[in-house]
């Protein structure tokens, strides 16, 4: 921040994620077409939008998934550009992506995975005993049994259990900014409350921020994001406070979608 002017110091040191005019494509198909988004510490944002509008792609592009090519724009995290950084380096800077469908991994336990991750994120990390203890507590907090520590990661786990494991990982790894991609999809009401408690615990820690993707109004009512954005066809076309959530849930996305001009051609 040495280059910042005194006046902008406080503003820029609050900002954790700054996405400017990001364009990205997958196999030559443009998906993100000029996304702008700023997230400050302590804020919780939700990104709304119809299926296929590019919400999950945004998470993958911030992570640096090579399957997508960023063709234009800037992603700055905590004041530094993400350009040229590998996914694990972005994670080490404090970005966490929770996956919509996390993979299962034979022979690798949650304990091994999180211990290795923790050591990668924090070279000074020593106490694996303490991690094990806190991992147990976190699992209980998510209504998951101790068994989940030692058994093969996500193997045979239900969708709900996998999502709760994502939350356990988030709370354990303690990043700066968490991008939670439909962490609430297909879960029962008890799990929804448990996940909400996890998110609240995380955001109350010092200097954290959250970006959510969710289609569930009930979940969003619980979580209470401070900011809401509408992503349509690869662009954020509206940003507002939480009132946008109830508006969309009442009225749907239709009015925000481009008018279909060639109805005749499409229907024939």
């Amino acid at each position: 921040m040495s280059q910042s002017f005194v006046g902008s110091e406080s503003k820029s040191s609050l900002m954790v994620l700054c996405i400017e005019n990001v364009h990205a494509q997958w196999n030559d198909t443009p998906i993100l077409q000029g996304v702008n988004l700023e997230v400050d510490k302590g804020e919780m944002h939700v990104i709304l939008g119809p299926n296929g509008s590019g919400k999950s792609t945004l998470g993958k592009v911030i992570l640096g998934d090579q399957a997508y090519q960023k063709t234009d724009g800037n992603i700055r995290f905590n004041g530094e550009s993400f350009d040229g950084l590998e996914p694990h380096e972005r994670a080490q800077k404090g970005f966490f992506l929770s996956w919509q469908s996390p993979p299962s991994i034979d022979g690798v336990s949650a304990k091994d995975l999180l211990l290795t991750a923790k050591k990668s994120l924090d070279p000074d990390f020593r106490s694996s005993f303490r991690l094990q203890k806190s991992l147990k507590e976190r699992l209980h907090g998510m209504h998951l049994s101790d068994e989940f520590m030692g058994r093969s990661y996500n193997v045979g786990a239900s969708g709900g259990e996998q999502r709760k494991m994502e939350m356990v990982s988030l709370l354990t790894l303690d990043p700066l900014c968490a991008f939670l991609d439909e962490i609430d999809s297909g879960i029962d009401v008890d799990s929804m409350h448990a996940l909400n408690e996890g998110i609240q615990e995380f955001i109350q820690r010092d200097g954290k921020s959250v970006i959510l993707i969710s289609h569930t109004q009930k979940f969003l009512q619980l979580v209470k994001p401070t900011h809401a954005h509408l992503l349509v066809q690869g662009k954020i076309i509206r940003s507002d406070d939480h009132s946008l959530i109830s508006y969309i849930h009442k009225n749907g996305f239709q009015e925000f979608l481009p008018k279909k001009k060639n109805l005749k051609v499409l229907s024939s």
Partner: peptide, 11 residues
């Protein structure tokens, strides 16, 4: 799986 582990900070 590789990307998932990398997304957790593991090289």
């Amino acid at each position: 799986i590789l990307l998932y582990l990398e997304s957790r900070g593991i090289d």
